[in-house]
Structures are given as C-alpha cells and as structure tokens.
Design a protein around this nucleic acid. Structure first.
Length: 399
DNA sequence: TCTGGGGTCCTAGGACCC
DNA sequence: TCTGGGGTCCTAGGACCC
C-alpha cells in the first residue's frame, strides 16, 4: 500500500533582530560628522534647537550639548561612544548630563525613525515572510522553512539579512538565531553591534546558564530583586531550583514559566499579525500642576489628549468602549480609573466626557506630574456592524 | 530640578447570571 | 438560613517590554 511519507519536520530556527542604537544611528545618517562621538537622543518635550534647522552642514561645535539641557525626560538611545561614559537608555537626562555633559543631544525625529523602521522591516519581508513586529527597532523572524534558513544554524541567512538592511538603509543590526524566541532574544545581545550569534540546544549550559537571571525577557527589576533575595543570581541558579519550589515563591503561572525559561524551553510561535488592544496618549508636564490652581491649564491639556487619542483611533480605523485616565502624582504614585461606556466610539467629545467622569473619582490631594487618556476594548467599526452592535433595547415592553 | 511615552498581560475582587 | 459551583464582565493596580 502506498503511504504518503511526510518528511520529518525541520528543527525550529528563530531569529531575533535588533537594530543597533537605532534612534541615534538614524541621526548619524543625517549628521555623519558626528560619527564616533558621544551622541544621545532624548529629552522629554520636543525642544528642537533652532541651530539644527541648518541641517547636515552644522559644524560639530554648534550642536546642542547634554550638559546644557534643562528639563524633564529620559535618554531614548545613546551611541556606543556615549555608552562608554555609562549613559544608557531610560536614564534620566539630569543624571546623564552629569556623566557626560559634552555629549551631543538630539531630539527624536519620530517620522524619520518610522521611515527607517518600515524600510528595514520590508527588507526582511522580501527575504523571510514570517516576521513578528516587536516595536520600531526589533523583530523576530522564523528561519525554519526559509530556503537556506538552516545552513550553518541560520548564520548564512542572518548574514544576508544583515547585509541587505545595510545596503538599503546604511544601518547595522545584531541578530541571534536559536531554537526559540526566548534564546534568540538573548543571543542577539551576545555580539553587539553588527554581530550574529548562533545558539544551539547544547549551548544552554555553557552560554545561557552563566547569564544573570535578569537577562531573561520577562524577568524584570522586581522579580530579579526577589530572586536575588532567595540567592538566585544566574539563569543556571534558576534552572537548579525545582519547579514546585519556584511555584511556591512566585505563583503557579509565573513560577512554572520561570522554570521553563531557565531550561531554555519556549514554544511561542512567531506571530505575524495582531490587533491593538488599546490606544493612549499621555504627557508629563513641565512642572507639577495643582488640580485647583492650574485647573484651566489641566483642562486644556486633558482635552488635547482626548483629541489626540480620538485622532489616532480615527486614523487607524478603530473605535473603543473602555475609556480611562492615568494620573501620576508628584510623589510618582500612579492612579488609574476607567469606565466602559454603552457603545464604541472614536469621538473626542464622548471620550472627553467619559474621561472627565473618571477624573472625578480620583482624590486630587497631591500635585500632578502626568495625565493620560486611554481607550481600550477596541474594535473595527465594520466588524461591529456585522455583530450588529445595536443600541441597548428599550425595556418595558416585555413586561 | 533624578525617573518619557506607548503598549501588553496578569491578578484579584465584586457584580451578576445560570 | 446556609451553602454551591462556573463563567463573564468590569475595575484598579502592577510588572514588564520597547
């Protein structure tokens, strides 16, 4: 009898690709005279120095310096020469300014960053169709079934992608290829910038276990601190603990996941498409605002935030049903309130109205540092029509 | 002058329904 | 009067990620 013989499945090869110092590298393309210098991108508000309008010919000594910056905000990206001074992503600007006042400071150009983001992603898609978007500067790519994706554990394909991106954009990236997303993510950091790292199952003990537990994507500062308190520093330490013990200390889901992660196990697929769950806009004020004394200013900002979210929803073709606000007080405590309204909307006034009611439920005894507006439970208007989301039926007639 | 902005997912309690 | 489950939705907070 004839049997259909299915070939054995190919071993999974998953790549994680991370653009090197992305925001900064994009600016270096525009100002090549800054190459090799400490440059940081960031600053809370978009305070574009007028000198930058001069464009590409601006002499180095005329660029704005980190040490001259006054204001709130954090570093988005630092070039490698700036990192040598200890400056890095998410660091407060004031702290960074103390470490490296002479660094050149440039504002983020979101349009330009998005343009290059689209360019590098479309370059990848021409080579490998299964790509998962993980933000402006990161993606996962499934190499498994791509022709040549298995050669040298994925190195050949990784090299091709790296070169194609560079030829198209002038930007470098680092790639890790491994049996799954979890390990690939760690591997892409092994040889930065402009590196490629190939990791196999057998590398778990020598290359993964010595790493700090914090390197696992999903173990953040809080979990890491708790692990340290329990005497666990490396991924190997974590792997040595038994599952039940981890569950005891971290709960059923998180404890079990930690155990799997430490053993390099991860079956998550590369997801090529997803729908947004929520959209939001928030802003940190130049100075902390008083709910009563600065009422007019707050109210105007509040309305603008609602208009921006509404604009985002409309532009992207979504409506939402859960309207929420977020406050950050001067002591950094955060409060959120939300309210689910009767029907989905993308209307600025309806959002403002619901958000206003949320605001009334927060005790405003401290000054405010940040205000945000969020719309969740998103849907596409067209799909709601199919589901026939109708007005709430009139009650009474049935009784 | 420490500490941005835009997200996702999880937990946990209460309401409400079956 | 007390005692049940399960399931879903809503809300608030928190951890984490880019």
């Amino acid at each position: 009898m004839l049997a259909r013989v299915t070939p054995p499945p190919l071993p999974r090869r998953i790549a994680h690709l991370d653009m090197d110092a992305f925001y900064a590298s994009v600016e270096l393309l525009r100002y090549p005279q800054l190459k090799g210098l400490p440059v940081v991108i960031g600053g809370g508000r978009r305070r574009v120095d007028s000198v930058l309008e001069q464009g590409a010919d601006l002499p180095i000594d005329q660029f704005p310096r980190l040490g001259d910056y006054k204001g709130r905000g954090v570093i988005t990206t630092a070039t490698y020469p700036a990192r040598a001074f200890g400056v890095g992503s998410a660091m407060g600007m004031m702290k960074a300014a103390k470490l490296c006042p002479q660094a050149i400071l440039l504002p983020v150009d979101f349009d330009e960053v998005r343009r290059f983001s689209r360019a590098f992603k479309s370059t990848i898609l021409e080579i490998a169709p299964l790509m998962e978007d993980r933000g402006v500067d990161e993606v996962y790519i499934d190499f498994t079934e791509v022709p040549g994706g298995q050669r040298e554990g994925g190195r050949v394909l990784a090299r091709l992608i790296q070169k194609s991106i560079f030829d198209r954009t002038g930007l470098t990236c680092s790639i890790g290829v491994a049996p799954n997303k979890l390990i690939a993510k760690m591997a892409s950091e092994f040889d930065k910038p402009n590196g490629i790292s190939i990791v196999h199952k057998a590398d778990l003990e020598p290359r993964i276990w010595p790493l700090p537990a914090r390197k696992i994507n999903g173990i953040g500062p809080k979990a890491d601190a708790r692990l340290q308190a329990l005497g666990i520093t490396t991924i190997g330490d974590l792997a040595a603990k038994d599952r039940a013990w981890l569950i005891e200390h971290f709960g059923r889901a998180y404890g079990a996941w930690m155990h799997e992660a430490a053993w390099g196990r991860d079956t998550r697929p590369v997801v090529t498409a997803s729908e947004p769950v929520s959209m939001s806009r928030e802003t940190t004020f130049d100075r902390d605002l008083h709910a009563v004394r600065d009422r007019a200013e707050l109210s105007a900002i509040f309305t603008q935030l609602c208009e921006k979210v509404a604009g985002d929803l409309q532009r992207k073709g979504y409506v939402g049903k859960t309207i929420g606000i977020k406050l950050r007080f001067d002591d950094f405590r955060i409060a959120t309130r939300d309210q689910t309204i009767a029907q989905h909307t993308a209307d600025a006034r309806l959002i403002r109205q619901a958000a206003g009611q949320c605001l009334k439920r927060v005790p405003l005894d401290r000054r405010l540092r940040l205000l945000g507006v969020r719309v969740g439970s998103l849907a596409k208007p067209g799909e709601l029509a199919l589901r026939a989301e109708a007005p709430v039926p009139v009650t009474g007639e049935l009784f």
